[in-house]
């Protein structure tokens, strides 16, 4: 059975300045299915930074990603771009076996 999987996500987020980009990006890279993470700072305020988070991978776990972003005290403003593909070769269950 073919399954739709997330390959790329671009998220606009507001990050507390105490959280370093290195720590946040490393934590996001630990999310299930994420292989590459890049974060770009767009704007710097007194306490916060507006950042664009780009996550790429074979099968990104969206819920896990959102949870990790929230755990690091970041507010998600919008999902600006998404790339989803249909994995016709095998289902997620078979992958896990």
């Amino acid at each position: 059975m073919a399954e739709a999987k997330i390959r790329k996500l671009v998220i606009d987020s507001l990050k507390p300045r105490e959280i370093s980009l290195v720590d946040l990006s490393k934590a996001l890279c630990e999310v299930y299915g994420a292989d590459n993470v890049s974060i770009v700072v767009n704007e710097v305020d007194a306490n916060t930074e507006t950042v664009t988070i780009t996550v790429e991978g074979d099968d990104i776990d969206f819920e896990d990603l959102i949870e990790t972003i929230s755990e690091y005290g970041c507010a998600i403003r919008s999902v600006d771009a998404i790339e989803v593909y249909k994995d016709k070769s095998k289902s997620k269950n078979l992958n896990n076996m």
Binding site: L14, P16, N47, T48, E71, Y72, G73
Partner: peptide, 9 residues
Amino acid sequence: ALQIDLDDS
């Protein structure tokens, strides 16, 4: 500033 709840963050 963030407009979110930071409990457990």
